[in-house]
C-alpha cells in the first residue's frame, strides 16, 4: 500500500493531478469494519484540461511510460488495482476538495471524509452503497451538521432517512 500511495502522490509532483482522495471500499475500510473490496478507487481533480472523450488519457500515458500493467479499467500499482476516477459531478469534486489528509503506512495521503463518503454513496445508490452508508452513519463519529448540509444541498436527505427507517 505504501508504494502504491507514493506512486499516486507522484502524480501531483508530475503535474498530472491537482488533488486526489481515496474513495470507495478502501475509504470505508478506513472508517468502518473490513468488507471485501478488490480495487483502490482514487477520485482525482486533473491538473490538465480534461479530454471529454478520453479523460483517463493522462493516466494511461503515465502508466505506459512507467511500464505498469493494466487490467480492464485498472492500472496495477504495486499489485493493487487502482481505478482513477476524474471527479464527475459537483458533489464528488467538493468531496475531494474537502478531503482529509491522513497518514497511511507512514505516507501522507488524502481520503474522503465520512460525511462526503456517505453522500456520494447515497447518490450512487447501489445495494452495497446503501449498506456501507448506513454502517458509516452508525459506526463513525460524524459532523452531523456538515452531513445535514451536504445532504440538503444535493437532495439526498430522504435517501438516508429511507435507509435508516428500513433498518428499524
Amino acid at each position: 500500500m505504501k508504494e502504491t500511495l507514493e506512486l499516486i502522490n507522484s502524480l501531483i509532483d508530475e503535474g498530472i493531478i491537482l488533488k486526489y482522495a481515496i474513495g470507495g471500499g478502501i475509504a470505508c475500510l478506513y472508517y468502518i469494519e473490513p468488507t471485501s473490496t478488490f480495487d483502490l478507487d482514487i477520485f482525482v481533480i486533473l491538473a490538465v484540461e480534461e479530454n471529454i472523450l478520453n479523460p483517463l488519457k493522462p493516466f494511461y500515458e503515465w502508466a505506459e511510460k512507467k511500464r505498469f500493467k493494466f487490467k480492464d479499467e485498472h492500472i496495477i500499482l504495486n499489485t493493487i488495482p487502482v481505478q482513477f476516477l476524474p471527479v464527475y459531478n459537483d458533489l464528488v469534486k467538493e468531496g475531494v476538495e474537502n478531503s482529509r489528509k491522513v497518514k497511511i503506512q507512514d505516507t501522507d495521503t488524502f481520503i474522503l471524509s465520512p460525511e462526503y463518503l456517505i453522500a456520494i454513496m447515497l447518490q450512487t445508490n447501489r445495494a452495497k452503497d446503501k449498506i456501507r452508508s448506513l454502517q458509516l452513519y452508525e459506526e463513525t463519529p460524524l459532523d452531523k451538521i456538515l452531513l445535514d448540509n451536504i445532504l440538503k444541498k444535493y437532495n439526498l436527505t430522504d435517501r438516508l432517512n429511507n435507509i435508516i427507517n428500513l433498518n428499524k
Binding site: L29, E33, P34, S36, Q105, T140
Partner: peptide, 24 residues
C-alpha cells in the same frame, strides 16, 4: 465486537481485507 473491529489499526484492517479477498 463492533467497537473492537472498527477501532483496530488500518494495517490490521488491510490484513483482514486480504483474508476476505481470499474467501470471496
Amino acid at each position: 465486537y463492533h467497537k473492537n473491529i472498527v477501532n483496530i489499526s488500518f494495517d490490521e484492517k488491510l490484513k483482514c481485507l486480504i483474508e476476505l479477498q481470499k474467501l470471496d
